[in-house]
């Protein structure tokens, strides 16, 4: 299983802040996961339809979207951060 966590408007559009899914096929990238999720019903397409607006973290480290998920426990999807 793989835990997905969502933040900011990604979380709001999807309507949940966390979920667990079956582990994607070996070699699946974050971008591939996003494309699969965006095909779901509900707010997923709205939240994830435009990957250029998204950033990601694997196991609490920022990663480019072309990163392979591998054996990660947690993938986070969110808009560009606005801290400070």
């Amino acid at each position: 299983m793989l835990t997905l966590v969502y933040f900011a408007w990604v979380r709001e559009s999807i309507g949940r802040d966390e979920e667990r899914i079956e582990r994607p096929a070996p070699g699946t990238t974050v971008a591939g996961l996003i494309a699969t999720l965006a095909a779901r019903e509900g707010g997923y397409a709205e939240a994830l339809g435009d990957p250029t607006k998204l950033r990601a973290a694997i196991d609490q480290h920022f990663v480019p979207l072309d990163t392979v998920i591998g054996e990660a426990r947690e993938v986070a999807l969110f808009p560009p951060v606005t801290g400070g």
Binding site: F7, A8, A57, A76, F78, V81, T82, G83, G84
Partner: peptide, 14 residues
Amino acid sequence: LIDWLKSHAPFWKK
């Protein structure tokens, strides 16, 4: 530090 916090710390403002 403040420049990096803006673009490297996982915060979102509403």
